[in-house]
Design a protein around this nucleic acid. Structure first.
Lengths: 136, 136
DNA sequence: GTCCATGCAAACGATTTGCATGCGT
DNA sequence: ACGCATGCAAATCGTTTGCATGGAC
């Protein structure tokens, strides 16, 4: 069982219903856009405001509790922080699936796509960090 | 020498000054945001409109002449279509550098970062394509 | 000469902000 | 009880659209 209450507290944040709802929805659905989250939470907590979702997503990303998954040609999605993995992003329905590959080679990616019946069009590998000029 | 005139024609597009300017700027700078491009071209062609840059970027992405590089926490950048490579994205200045790695392993990525004096924080591997449900 | 592309201004939609109130601690 | 978080409405910003004019072919 997940203790998101504790996770929020240890990140220096109050454990509000809205925040717990966001984290539970991300756990349930895996990858969600802001609107996905708002629509789902609106059913459980009709008084929730879209601005609250925006503010919380921003806060949770800053605190590194969740991760932004920017998507070419669509709005960003968000996921709970977890160990490294690969995203299969559908350019038609914008769904995102997680997969793991030990060693990333052109061939392994093709096999991975094949396994999931995913028609692979292109891959993008991004490393985030701090460049030489911005250090110190 | 690059013949962007020909590239545009073969993509079914008219070779206008504005489009040639966008491609040349991408070649010169590597990775640019919409605003980067607009600011630079505005100096050479003061009459250029921001709407024209938006329209052309959209058209060039659709025709697969350029590629969108969506960036976590910042606006997308764009690059000329070229062979597969890795992006080193600085979370401070948002610069993007290209690198190539034969085989992607945790260790190789760390060596790559080390070589460039890049402090690596996290990596994101995205495969774009069409999922099983959206085929046929 | 034709048709697509440009530039402008207006429209639109997504995201942020300010502030009074509510709730977690 | 204190102070952060929420919800609302207004403001802001990025992006798109419509249309008259210009330019590539």
């Amino acid at each position: 069982m997940n203790n998101y209450h504790e996770l929020l507290k240890s990140s220096g944040l109050k454990a509000t219903i809205q925040r717990l709802g966001i984290l539970e929805e991300l756990q349930k659905s895996g990858h969600c856009s802001i609107d996905d989250i708002y629509t789902t939470l609106k059913e459980k907590y009709p008084s929730i405001s879209l601005a609250t979702v925006y503010k919380n997503i921003q806060t949770l990303v800053e605190k590194r509790v969740i991760i932004e998954v920017p998507i070419s040609g669509a709005k960003s999605k968000y996921e709970l922080k977890k160990q490294d993995h690969i995203h299969l992003i559908c350019q038609v329905c914008n769904s995102v699936e997680d997969e793991s590959v030990e060693v990333v080679t052109q061939e392994n990616l093709m096999l991975l796509a094949q396994k999931d019946s995913f028609i692979l069009s292109r891959s993008q590998i991004n490393l985030y960090g701090v460049c030489r000029n911005c250090q110190g």
